[in-house]
Structures are given as structure tokens and as C-alpha cells.
Design a protein around this nucleic acid. Structure first.
Lengths: 205, 205
DNA sequence: GTCTATACGGTGATAGAC
DNA sequence: GTCTATCACCGTATAGAC
């Protein structure tokens, strides 16, 4: 913003320091947690001084918010798409697959960050982190399409939507490839939606 | 330890303050996170002074470790049980159900705590938190029984084991009953193990 | 833009009186 | 057992020189 980027220059000390800072922050927040990461940690990895971060961000929380603004509006898009579809139970599988498959390998970063910082969403001011609410809205919209709308089935549907999260967590401390994670999540989502749409379920005893 | 409990006395200020402290700590750690909870927070709720906590615990981390010692050895037991069973693919469903069903409603506290503090396990000294390792061992033992031991199937099996965790997370910010959560987790576990044991899977395109 | 220096508060922890 | 007082430390954040 302050200086036009030098064309073709590979200078790393340019105006993209902010971008690098966000990348570093995302990684450290994921590895050590938001609270467990100090501004000094971030600054040190950037090779700059702690105070210099305040030139790019208003404070630590501002970094966090920037991280959320950075990401796409997948949940919002999905909600909009779902709402303009005809009401049909078949929509359940399609919508859930759409969601899970939207997580390309590079987007798994976000999931991992959330897995490491589950409480951050609540601590964030008002609507800074819309993901939670939006995904909730999607879940509600889809739940209305369930043949049997029991609590248990509603929960199973939610679990289907959150299959990527579950897959990522199940793969923690493992050397499994990201492609495998996404594939397993997709299969899991299919299965969970399927049993959620089975008409009144039989409780085995 | 220091004073014999007064028979029939309902005094709350007795030697059970330690127990109350652990309960309060578990709740606050779950709500606000371990790092987000100060000793003052805990002491205030107990109606005692911050420093008084040091009479019962060596420090903050000691409280955390006591919390882990408090819980049962379910994972250890399951591992022992699995290892002395005959090698049979049918064991997969039985073992996973055993695990999921072992989570009575009151034991969900532990899952919720872990869900709120995912990084605590790694930060804990050496083998204080054996749960992670033990459950990993169970997963490995069961994985050897898979007909098709592909990465994807192994991961699906792990997801089956972690169905309670997934169910709890999917139910966050929801008024769903604990019974519903456990029931949904059980159904999810069945389904995930089932698709993990399906012989070479077909990837739809 | 990046630095040094510093203010300020909260936190875990200890010492010691009662 | 519980308290008050105090400690060192580390965190975020600000002021201001260069």
C-alpha cells in the first residue's frame, strides 16, 4: 500500500511482510495454539522486531481476525446454493459432498487451525468468525430435509458435514497424506448422511 | 489425609476441598481452556485464596495432571482385552462398540475437556497423558485385522474409534442430550467400521 | 519500516504470619 | 488450612528515535 512493488524483484523485505506474517502466524497458532504463541514468536521467525508487527496489525487479535478474513466464504456460498435448490432429500448427499470436497489440500490448513484452537471462535468479537454460524445455518437448512428429523439423525447429519474435521483429527500424529484424509472424509460423509436418512432407525439392544 | 473426615458431617470446608477444586478446574478448563484459566479463576469459584491452592497442588500443571490421574484406564483395559481376543475381523465392530459405549454420560466430561484443549496432550510431560498413546495402540492393533489395510481404511477405522469425539464436537453449541450424542456416536462407529472393512472400495468419480 | 526503551497488567509461584 | 504480601517473569502494547 505504501510502496508500489518493484516489478520482477524478488526482494522479500518488501510490502509482503504482512503476508508472510500471516502465514507464520497461521502455522504457529496451529502448532502451539493462539494463546501459546507470543508476538515475539512470530516476529522472531520473520526476522523482525516484536514492535514492528504493530506497523502491520493493530495487535495480536487483529492478526487473528485477518486470518479469518483471508479465507474464502465457502460456507456462505454453500448456504446460498442450498437455499436456491428444490427441496429434495437427495439434496442432502449432494450438499454434504459439495462441502467436503471443497476442501482441497491447501484448505486443510484452516481445519487444522480450528482443530488446534476450538475456543477461538467463541472468543472472537461478534461476527468476525462467521464460519461457525454459517455452517450451522447450512446444517439447519439440510436438517429440514431429513425424512425422520429425530435429534439423533440431526446430529448424524451434522457429523456428516463435519467429516473433514473428524478426519483431520483422526489423522493427527499420523503421516497420512492429505489426499487420503479428504477421501476418507468424503466416504465418511456419505455413510453418515445415509444412515441419517434411513427411516426410523432400529436401536439394537 | 491430614484430618479424619467427621462422620456424617456435611461440612463443605473439610478435606474435600481438593476434590471440589478438581471439579471446578475441569469445568473451567473445558469452558475457557487450560491457558485461558488462571489460578485465581479457580480459587475465586472455590471461595478461597489463590495461594491456598498451593496447599493442595504443587502448581497449575499439577492440577492438570491430577485431572488425568483421576480418570479411569478405559483405553488400557480395551487394549488388553483386544490383545487377548482371537484375530477375527468381526472383532472390529465389537471392539469399537465396546469403546464408544464405555462412554456413559458422566464420562463425556473428559471428551469435552479434550475437545477444548487439544494441545494439552502434547505439552504434558512424558507419559502423564497415556490416553493418546493407548488409543493409538488400540487403533494399530485393530488395523491389523482390516481385510484391506489401505491408508484410507485405516483412517476410517480411526474415525470410527473417535466417533464419540466427533459426536461431541458436532453437538457443540447445541442443546442435544448426552444420550443422543452417545447413541449417534455408536451408530456412526458402526457405519465407519463397516465401510472400512468393505473390500477394496470403489472411488466414485 | 524498523528499531530501542519502557510502561503496564496479569500470572504462576514463594515466604511467612495467623 | 487459609490468609496477606511480595516476587520475578512474560505478555501485549505504546512512544519515539532513526
Amino acid at each position: 500500500m505504501t510502496k508500489p512493488p518493484q516489478a520482477g524483484a524478488a526482494r522479500t523485505s518488501g510490502a509482503d511482510t504482512r503476508k508472510r506474517a500471516l502465514n507464520v502466524a497461521l502455522r504457529l497458532f496451529t502448532q502451539q495454539g493462539y494463546e501459546g504463541t507470543s508476538l515475539r514468536d512470530i516476529a522472531d521467525e520473520l526476522g523482525i522486531n516484536k514492535a514492528s508487527l504493530y506497523y502491520y496489525f493493530d495487535g495480536k487479535e487483529a492478526i487473528l481476525r485477518s486470518l479469518f478474513e483471508q479465507r474464502g466464504d465457502e460456507a456462505e456460498d454453500l448456504l446460498a446454493w442450498v437455499q436456491q435448490q428444490p427441496s429434495d432429500p437427495a439434496l442432502l448427499q449432494v450438499a454434504v459432498q459439495r462441502w467436503v470436497r471443497s476442501f482441497t489440500v491447501e484448505k486443510l490448513q484452516g481445519i487444522r487451525f480450528l482443530a488446534a484452537n476450538p475456543l477461538v471462535l467463541q472468543s472472537l468479537p461478534a461476527g468476525a468468525a462467521r464460519i461457525g454460524n454459517e455452517l450451522n445455518a447450512v446444517a439447519d437448512a439440510l436438517a429440514s430435509l431429513l425424512p425422520d428429523r429425530s435429534d439423533e439423525n440431526v446430529l448424524l447429519l451434522r457429523m456428516g458435514l463435519l467429516s473433514i474435521n473428524a478426519a483431520v483429527q483422526a489423522a493427527v500424529r499420523t503421516d497420512l497424506d492429505d489426499e487420503v484424509i479428504v477421501a476418507a472424509a468424503a466416504r465418511s460423509a456419505t455413510a453418515l448422511v445415509q444412515i441419517a436418512t434411513q427411516t426410523p432407525h432400529i436401536r439394537e439392544q
